[in-house]
């Protein structure tokens, strides 16, 4: 239909698929940021580093750990990593919240931002020191290798990429469901609105805040494991992605759960479309939209004015 522009349907669908995959990562990362921002009022700049840690833990489990324990054949496979890496990174996040972030809540929000930014630099620096920046490759698990050929469209759909979309959207919608439809979610929304009062009504809000940070961070690590077979595993993979994710969060509205999912996927698709129609703009289109949204609706598309 766009032949007159020199665009084939194959290119269009292929780019939309790439866009959908990127959008899935944006969604899951901005969702974690939204959960954290909602309860802690902290913009978690460590998010990218935690995503990178997820990917690295998966890679370490698969290729390094066996050697460390003296059994070179032994490995932690992808499926175990998909559960274990978020748990480990989430637990580290809980320690960060308990021993560092917690001390800053009575100060201006800027201090939380500075702390998490500093931590991101430290974590990335450590991984750079240990593994260099050349990047490691991680192969998709056997069950998800190969792909499906769509003869009609002349397209090849890699199975792993479809899995990424399904897995991240499932996790996003599951999180949304818990927050919007369950008792625990009621606590979370009430805590976002007025944490002091919720605590005066008998809810252990400090514990909730710790767990919310752990959960948000675990989402980042989950995205990291998902990303390991798609992108190169390297210490700066998070800082490259996280800048776009912050733009997504600003567009969707800080702290909005549904907003972060919808905007994440939507902007990924839009980026894909831009690659088809005007490739030169594809790396800036999200930031242009961010500027426009900031001008017209400073609280974001789904955000509430505070």
């Amino acid at each position: 239909m766009f032949e007159w522009l020199g665009i084939t349907p194959q290119a269009l669908v292929a780019q939309l698929l790439v866009g959908l995959i990127n959008g899935s990562f944006y969604a899951i990362l901005s969702l974690g940021l939204a959960v954290i921002f909602g309860l802690l009022n902290v913009i978690n700049f460590t998010h990218g580093a935690q995503y990178m840690m997820g990917a690295f833990l998966a890679w370490i489990g698969l290729t390094q750990l066996g050697g460390w324990v003296g059994k070179p054949d032994w490995e932690v496979n992808y499926w175990v990593a998909l559960v274990a890496a978020p748990l480990i990174v989430g637990a580290i996040g809980i320690l960060i919240e308990r021993f560092m972030l917690k001390r800053l809540y009575h100060l201006d929000h800027l201090y939380g931002l500075l702390l998490t930014f500093g931590l991101a630099l430290v974590i990335e620096g450590m991984f750079r020191h240990w593994y260099g920046i050349s990047g490691e490759s991680y192969s998709a698990p056997e069950a998800l290798q190969g792909g499906i050929r769509l003869e009609g469209l002349g397209l090849f759909l890699p199975k792993y990429r479809l899995w990424v979309i399904v897995a991240s959207l499932t996790v996003c919608l599951g999180t949304w469901f818990v927050i919007e439809r369950t008792k625990l979610g009621n606590y979370l929304r009430a805590g976002t609105e007025n944490p002091k009062l919720l605590q005066a009504l008998g809810v252990n809000v400090p514990l909730m805040i710790t767990l919310a940070y752990g959960f948000g961070v675990a989402l980042a690590a989950f995205a990291g494991v998902l990303a390991a077979p798609v992108f190169q595993v390297n210490p700066v993979m998070g800082s490259n992605l996280i800048i776009v994710v912050f733009a997504v969060v600003v567009i969707g509205g800080m702290g909005s759960i549904l907003g972060s999912i919808v905007t994440g996927v939507g902007l990924g698709l839009l980026e894909g479309l831009t690659k088809v129609f005007y490739p030169e703009a594809s790396s800036v289109v999200i930031f242009v939209i961010m500027a426009i949204v900031l001008l017209l609706r400073p609280a974001g598309l789904f955000g509430k004015e505070r």
């Binding site: 009621n186 929304r189 009430a190 609105e193 009062l197 919720l198 008998g202």
Partner: peptide
């Protein structure tokens, strides 16, 4: 009064543990 605006009336009622 501290009614949570993002919760329904009934959710507010059922909120305190």
């Amino acid at each position: 009064r501290g009614i949570f605006a993002s919760l329904t009336c009934e959710q507010n009622l059922m909120l305190p543990p």
